[in-house]
Design a protein around this nucleic acid. Structure first.
Length: 854
RNA sequence: GCCGGGAUGGCGGAAUUGGCAGACGCAGUGGACUCAAAAUCCACCGGUGGCGACAUCGUGCGAGUUCGAGUCUCGCUCCCGGCACCA
């Protein structure tokens, strides 16, 4: 063992030893309990960022810890390799997305290896490989057969200059990101997956995901959005035509307060009205031109237009005018609402603006209602008034009575409506998984036969920003109809990349099978025991994966329905933001390393602080993990990230903090070095130790118990590391070169190395060898705390008088209340506060505390 | 607007079941070593009063429950995140 800690040398040697032994290559083994530890796979954007390092360090610590607990641990890694950035890079640099992606993968793989993650690389996959995405296509065809996948028209953002479809993130302030042209809405045919069919199950099962963060479960529940209500029919008749307008409402109790109905601009009734009314036509067309994004819709002014149509109130028979409103969403419920201005804020505003009558029909605890101005309590539940037969009923009774009456007339039924919508997976993009459909002029849309899968994506195309290069590739598009053999066109849309990430965890478990999507190996490994990734995937990715897994289950491919048993969402990595705002021109950002005490090092002039924020290229506050590893080694980088904050919190970058972690590594190394210079130590003779030796031994075993609990149960890696630091501080104070002292020292250092080995595996590997072991520390079992070491003859208890801390006294370990009372009252510090008063009561918490109440 | 989470020293954070507030680290201060600096080591490090022992206040604000509250209850303030014209 060298005296100096040389991370580069230590880390290369450890990695070589692991590789030579095939340490992380795992096989299914029915005799051992399995543990599948998975981190969300990265998008190969170029190089690793700090968020990756944090994510994969958390996973690696858990994987190594569980391995030491005796589990057969699988920790795989792959690449979420399809997506828009590869096309953008192609547009900028003229490089094919395939080459760009694969170059990035090989670079990032080397970086991951340098960080020492215990990954089974034999299972690596990239979603852009045909032997992966062929199974996307295969399962898509099964979904078509089962009616889970279907085709219908959908709305997209259309850039009229580039003649291309834009993703939502390519629309900036309603304009195309490259052309600046106002974006239009377009209706085009797209494929959808019927996730709504699984809404009830996806929502219900959230309750059983008790090892997921509450936050994520709530977010998913809100997203799925279950509403119970009544679907009400308003019949209409106009110029010889008749029909029924349906609306959904959760407030059937207010139905007697309906003074208008409003339909979405895309609603068939709006179209009908527009045919005979230029005013309505103009309004509907205006709505169509506005943004497709709902966030924008929400902030738009509420506007509407009256139509010449009216409908019949299902209970009163009154005529109710039909309006078209821009605030009515076609995609939710029936695309139409009943207007109850008395008790709905939007309807109230709408009625005020257009002079529609406002009729209060709910009385809330006798509070006075005025139609002059909206009051926040107007939508509260109460008793029906102005409602004929329903007067006096409360919310539940009124809904019940009204639903029954509507049902008996055939003009309504109770209904559950979901906010969740079906998943549109068609993307008019090149770099994605081709949708395996052939369009035949005679046979229509024909699925590609299984035997012809995969439909391979040509890898030599270079997008130029206008349209989808696939559509321009004759070799790809032109084909024969599988049914009739006639000339046909291949579908050029590709799948949403969320499809790729919805089942990759199954594929890791049965890598390399070219005959089936999954096999028996997947039933050994699945479900994933611990999944780790960013909170930004709390809704879409995790919901799609839960859905896709259920589809696989219903296709008989797996018995699992929840893919991820336990979920950890790690916080983001933040850094300081510094900038200057010139009088004219754009804000200039400075890297925190260029700034000291609020001044730019280069010119000594002040810069403005933007607080802390996520590391990003645009704000120039990123820290490159590579520089960190080059300078301090992977172990220090890993240690700092795990120590600086609990895994779910945001982590503020601190160069000083990294220095602190490095200092700790050097101190630990030096301590081990100094110890092993003394030659081999004898085994600990438990019975023959003096007080100081027993003390260190107790601290070591206490730390061991805490660290095991912190990693295994609490996942508070920061406190685990703090406990080891505390132990090392105690070790440093322990100066005892006697044979017995050296034996205790040897044991304590071995425990430190074992406890730290999940965090700093390379240094632990070297120090374990230095401490005299032929084995690799990575193969060691997690030690059990020795109960004998934890025993104490006396314990310190705190003494309070009236709840205020007044003294600490030593009592025998198993002391009863009488003994504790005696010791407490005998203490002079306590006596001072008790003197002259009567002890009314005495609380004793054994081994901890006495509270004297006077 | 609705839902969720949070607020503890100069900073990141700890206090796990209602029982010693501030573990551990960073920054800072003083000292040792050094010609000097870096590195390293030692000590101190919430406020106020006191030479000191010690006392006293202190976990966003206001109440409450309790022998005892950072932790529980009620009411506020502010911050962060999610959803958001969802009928």
């Amino acid at each position: 063992m060298r005296e100096r800690y040389e991370p580069a040398e230590v880390e290369a040697a450890a990695q070589q030893d692991w590789a030579a032994a095939g340490t992380f290559t795992v096989r299914e083994d029915a005799a051992r309990p399995k543990y599948y530890c998975l981190c969300m796979f990265p998008y190969p954007s170029g190089k690793l960022h700090m968020g990756h390092v944090r994510n994969y360090t958390i996973g690696d610590v858990l994987a190594r810890f569980m391995r030491m607990q005796g589990f057969n641990v699988l920790q795989p890694m792959g690449w979420d390799a399809f997506g828009l950035p590869a096309e953008n890079a192609a547009i900028e640099n003229g490089v094919a997305p395939a080459k760009w992606t694969r170059d990035n993968i090989s670079h990032m793989k080397r970086q991951l290896q340098a960080l020492g993650f215990g990954i089974d690389w034999s299972r690596e996959l990239a979603t852009c490989d045909a032997d992966y995405y062929r199974w996307n296509q295969w399962l898509f065809l099964r979904m078509l057969e089962r009616g889970i996948a279907y085709k219908t028209t959908g709305t997209v953002n259309w850039d009229p200059v580039d003649q291309t479809v834009l993703a939502n993130e390519q629309v900036i302030d309603g304009r195309g990101w490259r052309t600046g042209a106002p974006v239009e809405r377009r209706e085009i045919p797209m494929y959808y997956l019927r996730i709504t069919q699984y809404a009830e199950e996806l929502l219900g099962a959230l309750g059983r995901l008790d090892e997921w963060p509450e936050r994520v479960r709530t977010m998913q529940a809100n997203w799925i959005g279950r509403s119970e209500g009544v679907n009400v029919t308003f019949p209409w008749r106009v110029a010889g035509r008749a029909g029924e307008l349906r609306v959904f409402t959760t407030r059937a109790d207010t139905i007697m307060g309906v003074t208008f109905v409003a339909v979405a601009p895309e609603h068939p009734l709006a179209e009908l009205a527009a045919q005979g009314d230029p005013g309505v036509r103009a309004f509907v067309d205006e709505c169509r031109r506005s943004s497709v994004m709902e966030a924008d819709l929400a902030t738009m002014e509420k506007k509407g237009v009256a139509t010449p149509l009216s409908v019949t109130h299902p209970l009163t028979g009154a005529d109710v005018p039909v309006w078209v409103g821009n605030y009515v969403l076609m995609a939710y419920g029936e695309g139409a609402v009943m207007g109850v201005p008395g008790h709905d804020e939007r309807d109230f505003a709408f009625a005020k603006k257009y002079g529609l009558p406002i009729l209060p029909v709910i009385d809330v605890e006798g509070r006075g209602y005025s139609t002059d101005a909206w009051q926040p309590w107007y939508p509260e539940y109460g008793r029906c008034v102005n409602s004929g037969a329903y007067d006096g009923l409360d919310y539940a009774a009124a809904v019940e009575a009204i639903a029954l009456d509507l049902e008996s007339k055939g003009l309504g039924r109770r209904q559950v409506v979901w906010r969740l919508r079906d998943w549109g997976i068609s993307r008019q993009r090149y770099w994605g998984c081709p949708i395996p459909i052939i369009h035949c002029p005679a046979c229509g849309d024909v699925p590609v036969p299984d035997a012809e899968l995969p439909v391979r994506l040509p890898e030599d195309l270079v997008p130029d920003g206008s349209g989808n290069p696939l559509a321009k590739s004759k070799a790809f598009v032109e084909c024969r109809c599988p049914k009739c053999g006639a000339a046909a066109r291949r579908e050029t849309d590709t799948m949403d990349t969320f499809v790729d990430s919805s089942w990759y965890f199954f594929r890791f478990a049965c890598a390399g099978n070219d005959r089936a999507m999954v096999d028996g190996r997947a039933s050994y490994w699945m479900p994933v025991d611990q999944y780790i990734g960013g909170i930004e995937h709390a809704i879409l990715h995790l919901l799609y994966a839960r859905f896709w897994t259920r589809v696989m289950r219903d296709c008989g491919l797996t018995a699992v329905d929840e893919p991820f048993r336990r979920l950890l969402t790690q916080g983001m990595v933040l850094n300081e933001i510094w900038f200057r705002k010139p009088a004219s021109g754009r804000i200039v950002y400075y890297h925190p390393s260029e700034v000291a005490d609020g001044r730019l090092k280069a010119d000594g002039q002040p810069v403005e602080s933007g607080g802390v924020g996520t590391m990003s290229k645009s704000r120039r506050n990123g820290v490159d993990p590579q520089e960190l590893v080059d300078r301090y080694g992977a172990d220090t980088a890993r240690l700092f990230m795990m120590f600086a904050a609990p895994p779910e919190h945001t982590l503020e970058w601190s160069d000083e903090g990294v220095e602190g972690a490095f200092r700790f590594m050097k101190r630990l190394w030096k301590t081990v070095h100094a110890h092993v210079q003394g030659g081999p130590a004898a085994p600990v003779e438990r019975a023959a130790l003096d007080a100081a030796q027993r003390g260190l031994r107790r601290q070591a075993h206490q730390a061991l118990a805490k660290v095991g609990d912190d990693i295994g149960r609490r996942r508070t890696f920061n406190t685990a590391i703090a406990a080891v630091m505390e132990l090392l501080n105690a070790i440093a104070r322990f100066e005892d070169a006697s044979p017995r002292g050296r034996a205790v020292m040897q044991e304590a250092l071995e425990l430190v190395v074992l406890m730290l080995s999940p965090f700093v595996p390379h240094a632990a590997h070297a120090m374990w060898r230095a401490l005299g072991h032929a084995t690799m520390v990575v193969d060691e079992a997690w030690p059990r705390p020795d109960p004998a070491a934890l025993e104490q003859a006396t314990v310190e208890i705190v003494v309070q008088v009236n709840g205020k801390l007044r003294a600490r006294v030593q009592v025998a370990a198993g002391a009863d209340e009488a003994a504790a009372r005696e010791a407490a009252l005998a203490d002079p510090g306590v006596a001072r506060f008790v003197a002259g008063q009567t002890v009314r009561k005495l609380i004793y918490v054994p081994g901890k505390l006495v509270n004297v109440v006077v």
